[in-house]
């Protein structure tokens, strides 16, 4: 198929940036979206132009490195799909595809389609873990865990930290990301010990870094490639209030 592409090009954080039009021909419907960009880039290189910079790594939908706002959707039009798992059969011959980076103040643009998501690492460093050191822990089966709760914890833990939730949110809220980690640990007995401190520290860091608040539009859940549920946000809010009240 032949396609028209409108791709955001920006040389660095201080550059103004603009859309640049490209045309690309003979793309197989079996190619992935990123393979289509690979082909474009190799054509650009052969023409002596600079290729489009974009983040990607595992191309299996799990590392969370790929991003891209495609035709108005983080990770493109398919539900529960990362950009790297999006395939060209989803598009039609002659389509125009608009490709932009994540847009949110806490995710500044590095170059073209690459943004800096280190704010997510900072939130985790604020307390998104269980403080155990290596060694000296009890046998893994010492504390039985209700299967339903363990499954819910796993649902929340499936977050890949890609930032689509922030990109989708009109407030650039990181609540879905933060609540997924808070929930995972709040649901497990190992995580309960520090639950109050954790939620307070992570929320404070999230606010400090300039992420917005949740106004319940659920765009984050709709666009999340791992279908992380907004019920996690509700759980985080409960955890947060309980922590505040009891402190």
């Amino acid at each position: 198929m032949d396609l028209k592409l409108k791709i955001w090009r920006q040389n660095g954080p201080d550059d103004k940036g603009k859309f640049v039009d490209y045309e690309i021909k003979n793309i197989s419907t079996d190619a992935s979206f990123l393979e289509m960009l690979d082909i474009l880039n190799n054509e650009l290189i052969e023409k002596g132009e600079e290729p489009v910079a974009f983040d990607h790594d595992c191309r299996e939908g799990i590392c969370g490195m790929c991003s891209l706002y495609i035709n108005g959707h983080p990770h493109g039009p398919d539900a529960a799909t990362t950009t790297c798992q999006l395939h060209m059969r989803r598009f039609k011959d002659g389509d125009t595809i608009v490709v932009e980076p994540w847009r949110a103040k806490p995710f500044p643009i590095v170059k073209d389609l690459i943004v800096d998501r280190s704010a997510f690492d900072e939130i985790i460093q604020a307390g998104g873990y269980i403080s155990v050191n290596t060694g000296g822990v009890p046998d893994a089966n010492t504390i039985p865990i209700n299967k339903g709760k363990a499954d819910l914890a796993m649902d929340a833990a499936a977050c890949i930290g890609c930032g689509a939730c922030v990109a989708a949110c009109k407030n650039a809220s990181a609540m879905l990301f933060v609540s997924a980690k808070v929930s995972q640990f709040a649901l497990l007995p190992q995580g309960r010990i520090e639950a109050k401190e954790r939620v307070k520290k992570m929320v404070a860091k999230m606010d400090e870094l300039g992420f917005g608040n949740c106004t319940n539009t659920y765009a984050c859940e709709a666009e999340c490639p791992k279908e992380i549920s907004v019920t996690n946000i509700a759980r985080m809010n409960r955890e947060f209030f309980a922590a505040k009240v009891s402190s």
Partner: peptide
């Protein structure tokens, strides 16, 4: 390793009785 990971909150698959 398994003990360590469970202590870190890794949500391994479990049986209905709550064990791994």
């Amino acid at each position: 390793i398994i003990d360590q990971c469970v202590a870190q909150g890794v949500p391994f698959a479990r049986e209905y009785g709550g064990l791994l």
